[in-house]
Amino acid sequence: MKRTHLPLNALRVFDAAARHLSFTRAADELAVTPAAVGQQIRALEDLLGVVLFRRTSKGLELTEEASGGLAALRTGFLHFEDAVQAMQAGQSSHVYTIACPREFFAAWLAPRLAAFRAANPQVRYVLVDGEMTDFTEANLDLAVRWTDGPGDLEGISLGTAEWVEVGSGDWIGWPGDPEPEGEGPEGEGEEAKPPIMVSDAGQAIAAALAGMGRAHIPALLAAGVAGNGRADLIGEAVACRRAYWLVAPVPQWRQKKVKELVAALTAGA
């Protein structure tokens, strides 16, 4: 019999009826009607091709066939319970796997993770570089992404949707800032692109600080620029569509351990 075709609900009913030797008491345990129990037992008997219960003057009795399979069935249910507990144990695990852009980790996330671990010494972190890392492939608990919303994931924004201009001169473009594409030299295609293209906000900041041009950078990263003694290069914060979002699929987002970390990271934000 294929595992995908196991009549698990009927087997659960059979186990309850076998323990009580009563459809009525089994129904009370399972919060169904005695008639529903009888239907499940008859359906299971039809599927297996055996009789499971015999009615006698003393009440229900298990047949030899039913008794022969009962011990293995109950062992199987115990294994199911062990499997569920093992899966739930991940919710109480103290290991967090987090994907985050490198520059955001250095400027914002690292000190907050350190504070959370100081209050919870049992916590361990696995940090993965990159915003778009796949949750399933990397077994992620959380990810930080520079985006205009959580999309299909659950999430919360970290700070406001703002960026600042850093540096001067030609535009430095990066994938998180599509605006310079319309502010480069007049023309179309390659001619309309900024003269300098980099791969992420961290490289945009480094290029601007090196005097290669000017770039839009997320406002949450501006403090790091000021800390380098280059506050004179930072412009005023202006609204934009994107912000840093802390995101996860619904199952991860609902886990107790994830809720605790999210609450700590966003406290006072």
Rank of each mutant, 00 (worst) to 15 (best):
F77T: 13
P150R: 13
A66R: 05
L140W: 10
L60H: 08
V164A: 14
D170W: 08
L140N: 14
K58R: 05
L158S: 15
T75V: 09
G69Q: 09
D82I: 03
F105R: 09
E131S: 11
F135C: 01
V126A: 02
G159K: 15
Q122T: 12
F105I: 07
P121Q: 03
G76E: 03
G76L: 05
L73C: 04
K58P: 00
F77A: 12
Q88P: 05
E162I: 13
L158W: 15
W108C: 14
E137M: 08
F105S: 04
T75K: 12
E165W: 05
V164S: 09
A66S: 11
R112E: 01
H79M: 14
Q91C: 04
D129R: 12
W108K: 10
E131Y: 06
D148A: 15
V164H: 14
E154T: 00
M132P: 05
L142W: 10
L62D: 00
M87A: 06
F104H: 10
W163R: 11
P150L: 04
C100N: 08
F80S: 12
A72P: 00
E137N: 08
T56Q: 03
A110Y: 03
G90W: 14
L70V: 05
D141L: 05
A138D: 13
R117L: 12
G167D: 08
A89N: 10
I98T: 01
C100D: 06
